[in-house]
């Protein structure tokens, strides 16, 4: 036996198996045992963990609506001038005691002993799995089948405020003038339904923080922003599993 020849032969231990081959083998096993069904019927990974691994942005082609209205907030650019808030107020007749969108303020300690301020715009997340819609006893609020906007029909609202307790984002308030819950509708009533292409807040933003658009369209800015390499995209409170459509990034 020529030891030298044997040594030159490719190794047959596990280190030589490429990950592609390994996956193929695994898939084969899972297919045989009936567990691999495209990950939809019986997923081995819970939705929450899958989101944590892949980020909150759904995979391309997985947007349930068209136009799939989305807002991307480029957080680091926000300077809290609140023109968005004012524009929203006048456009949607929001009373002084309420808001459809607002700016929160976060602080992060810096290495040099100071801190930086981060302004965080918040609004209705128009979730794909909206808790508010589930709890409404009268379907006064619903997820629009075409656009994915979470809509309100004031005349149907009985004012039980369950949606307010169910919303993980505190995006709803009771408007006495309308005698109904009021919330952001991505300016559907005031603008989009009349042919405008963006929301009042996005139009008013001087710093290009709020980008509104159709995520189902790969040419849209929102799509581009959410699919830029080397960037992080996050959503608020992903743990509640509401699958929000308002994304945050610093891209």
């Amino acid at each position: 036996m020529d030891i030298g020849k044997l040594q030159r032969l490719p190794s047959e231990d596990l280190s030589a198996i490429t990950s592609r081959e390994r996956r193929k083998f695994l898939r084969l096993g899972l297919t045989i045992t009936g567990l691999y069904l495209g990950g939809t019927v019986l997923s081995l990974v819970s939705a929450r963990r899958a989101e944590a691994a892949g980020g909150p942005v759904p995979a391309t082609g997985q947007y349930p609506y068209n136009p799939h209205y989305t807002m991307v907030l480029r957080e680091a650019r926000c300077v809290d001038c609140e023109r968005c808030k004012e524009a929203c107020k006048t456009t949607n007749h929001v009373p002084d005691y309420g808001y459809r969108t607002t700016i929160l303020e976060r602080r992060r300690d810096l290495a040099e002993g100071t801190y930086e301020t981060i302004f965080m715009p918040v609004l209705c997340n128009h979730c794909n799995r909206p808790p508010c819609v589930r709890v409404c006893p009268t379907t006064a609020t619903w997820k629009d089948k075409k656009t994915g906007i979470v809509m309100m029909k004031p005349s149907r609202c009985i004012g039980c405020k369950t949606c307010m307790t169910a919303c993980p984002y505190n995006a709803r308030y009771f408007q006495e003038e309308k005698r109904a819950i009021d919330k952001c509708d991505f300016c559907w009533q005031a603008r989009l339904s009349k042919g405008e292409t963006t929301t009042a807040c996005a139009a008013a933003c001087p710093a290009d923080v709020r980008i509104f658009g159709n995520l189902a369209d790969p040419k849209s800015r929102v799509y581009q922003l959410l699919h830029t390499p080397d960037t992080i995209v996050w959503v608020l409170r992903p743990e509640v599993g509401a699958l929000p459509n308002v994304f945050y990034t610093n891209a």
């Binding site: 589930r134 709890v135 409404c136 006893p137 009268t138 379907t139 006064a140 005349s155 149907r156 609202c157 009985i158 004012g159 039980c160 405020k161 369950t162 009771f174 005698r179 109904a180």
Partner: peptide, 26 residues
Amino acid sequence: EIENTWRMPIALVLGFNLTSNIWWMG
């Protein structure tokens, strides 16, 4: 407590929502 109590009888019938616990409870 419900701010539009008077809408309840009609709204609960017209807009019934079987996923809503409030609807079932009522």
